[in-house]
Design a protein around this nucleic acid. Structure first.
Lengths: 208, 208
DNA sequence: ACTATCCGTGAACCCGGATTCACATTGCGG
DNA sequence: CCGCAATGTGAATCCGGGTTCACGGATAGT
């Protein structure tokens, strides 16, 4: 993984002593996915990155899919937390909206590949189920927020669910989409995030 | 495939006589992808759908990837044409923008799975290269249109490339995203498309 | 120290699916 | 009518990658 300091909150409920192999496997998996997506994340590659043998993985997970589901959960959880943290302290609807969008965009920008894999790349039925759950939760959160804005007459009345999807779409496409590497290199991340926020505001009709 | 009448413009440059097996394979591939994505599109499945043996595929294509690239090209070409057709006859910027967005959304809505596979699902390096080319072309077209709007002072000044990405994102996420099947079933397609158009207009700051 | 378990190992095994190939079959030019 | 080349066939082969398993080496409790 590039260099994201934060640690995945992989419940270290350790069986007995265990030097933390399980956690290392989870982190290794996230790392491999981050630079290569699901396809490059073979059991061999993950094990190697974790510094263990392939078979070891099965001492800790029933299957590869199982491991992936757990990675997915951990990362999703981390993202959701970040989002919630971002909105504490905000007072107005506009502030809250900006904070959330900015946080989401900002974070996705750092771990593009991983974010992309988690949000889009289809893979396994089990993982897909997890993905759907996560997206629904996220979408619903955004939709709820939008409803608040509508209720407070800060933004015009509209289909909150569709609007939420639209907002997510703006962020996703702008950040993790098949980014034309050229254009992106030259634009500083901060500027991109700022633009994203502007577009998202417009989508929901929030003057700004 | 569900029931889309139009035919893929697969250049029928036929080698000699050929009952059109090559074309049938291409159509079969598109059909299989339409209801199942890349993963379900095995050589066996495609061949079966085309009513030929697996080996036959290799009489017409160097490899599976090769076939996919061609399917991709054909479909992309078809979509681009539709878009161009949609904009003829329009006079104002707003009209043109609406027409294009509506067309894109409308078509994606019909062949969701296929659209999704083509736009997002990663697969093969060769196909991905093709995808990138297509997306770049599409994005640039949209960006160019947006620049027109800016030039004519119909919409505020902005980063046209990012705005284009945002527009594409809105459409993609709203239509082919992991759509919560529930909500969508109840909302008529026309309403969805209308909402999409509204959101897209807002993204670029087009009053309406 | 002794044993029951846990943990790690990596080669062997298995399986789905792409690719190949030796063998028909068909159409066309001569 | 003959032969050659294009096509079609489907069983055999290959191959990447997930999963299993018999075999040590460590650890904790007695």
């Amino acid at each position: 993984m590039s260099g994201h300091a934060e640690t995945l909150a992989f419940s270290a409920k350790a069986g007995k002593r265990e030097a933390g192999t399980r956690e290392r496997l989870l982190h290794a998996a996230a790392a491999v996915i981050q630079d290569g997506g699901w396809t490059s994340a073979s059991v061999g590659a993950i094990a190697k990155r974790a510094g263990v043998a392939a078979g070891t993985l099965y001492r800790h997970f029933d299957s590869k899919a199982d491991l992936f589901v757990e990675v997915f959960r951990a990362v999703s959880h981390r993202e959701m937390s970040a989002m919630r943290t971002a909105e504490i302290g905000t007072t107005s609807f506009a502030e809250r909206f900006d904070a959330i969008v900015r946080t989401y965009a900002d974070r996705a920008l750092r771990n593009r590949r991983l974010a992309w894999a988690l949000v889009y790349e289809p893979l396994d039925a089990a993982v897909d189920r997890e993905r759907l759950t996560y997206r629904r939760a996220y979408s619903e959160g955004m939709a709820a927020l939008i409803r608040q804005g509508i209720a407070s007459k800060t933004i015009p009345n509209q289909d909150a669910d569709l609007a939420a999807a639209a907002v997510v779409g703006v962020i996703a496409e702008s950040l993790v989409g098949p980014l034309s590497p050229v254009a992106r290199e030259t634009t500083p991340d901060a500027a991109i995030v700022a633009a994203i926020v502007t577009f998202c505001r417009r989508v929901i009709g929030l003057p700004g």
